[in-house]
Nucleic acid binder design. Structure first.
Lengths: 181, 181
DNA sequence: GTCTATAATTTGATAGAC
DNA sequence: GTCTATCAAATTATAGAC
């Protein structure tokens, strides 16, 4: 794996654990096995690194969503798949959603980074809204309200599970959301 | 107002905006109008300050909940009151829930601070569970699952509203939760 | 692309005077 | 309780050699 990729992987891990202010170029450099100046070669500023990581995270997330899409999927299966993508983030990685954490601290983030975190939410809301309109036959407004409700609940469930070191807390929320369809 | 109180107020503000790693003793001292060594007089370490602020936040939150309690309140009114406490945090303060933010970054926090954030969630879940049992006549397990669902959704709604600079996003979630009773 | 070296600033924290 | 003075360490970032 290239050092560029390693840098982004480690930065993503650290942001998802503690936020944008919780890591330094030196820590990343040490874990890669290079010097901090070499990290600056790839990403001139910390903001550049944060933006690249957030963009990559959102793009991958949306790609995974679209990758599991299937014209024959029912609303029920679509939403179950959607919930599973969040579930994986929690149970495999034992970490927060990167953009969820950035959203929480967004008032204190550079504008560009806040915008990138917002993009994650907007794309998710767009995707969910579409499903609720096309498969659930809701009107646009109701569909969007429901979409916001779903992503908010899932992000909150990650946060509550995290602080309680208890992934079954996520399951409790997931179950309620599925029952709501 | 005493400097001790001012220090805690400013620290609370900064944590709610950007998390535990987003402020320094010097910044707080500057805003109070004293020197950073004087802040250390009141709170020897940053952890001491964080713990005091988190404890105060949770105690006040629970006090407010109990203050609005009334034996004659229906489940509907109880939960509407509960949601209103979160709503106030967002619309009056335009900030995250302090313990919500600490929960998000809890994997990177000193254990004592993570525990204090966890206490907020446990007390909230306890309070909600009780209401669902006593006023909603749910069994203990269903009540607790519903309690977890409610606090998770509300915390997530704060986070989603924050990153979108749009308080109506919170309203969308609040409305769905009320409809669910 | 990675290194050494270094700059300028900030950080959490302490000692001791008043 | 607040101050001055100070510390050691860490931070983001740059210049220039290889």
């Amino acid at each position: 794996m290239s050092n560029l990729t390693k840098i982004q992987d480690i930065a993503e891990h650290k942001i998802r654990i503690g936020g944008f202010n919780s890591f330094s170029f030196r820590e990343i450099a040490d874990e890669v096995g290079i010097k901090s100046s070499s990290v600056h070669y790839h990403f001139p500023t910390k903001l550049d690194l944060g933006l690249a990581v957030a963009k990559r995270y959102t793009d991958r997330f949306i790609d995974e969503l679209k990758g599991h899409e299937d014209a024959s999927l029912s609303l029920q299966l679509c939403i179950e798949m959607y919930i599973r993508v969040f579930e994986t983030a929690l149970k495999r990685d034992r970490k927060m959603c990167l953009c969820g954490l950035l959203a929480a601290e967004s008032s204190n983030l550079p504008n560009a980074l806040k915008s990138e975190a917002r993009r994650f939410f907007q794309l998710n809301i767009e995707w969910l809204t579409n499903k609720f309109v096309e498969l659930g036959h809701l009107d646009e407004n109701s569909a969007k309200a429901k979409a916001i409700f779903y992503i908010s609940s899932l992000e909150g469930a990650l946060l509550t599970s995290q602080v309680n070191d208890d992934t079954t807390i996520f399951d409790a929320t997931a179950k309620q959301l599925k029952a709501l369809l």
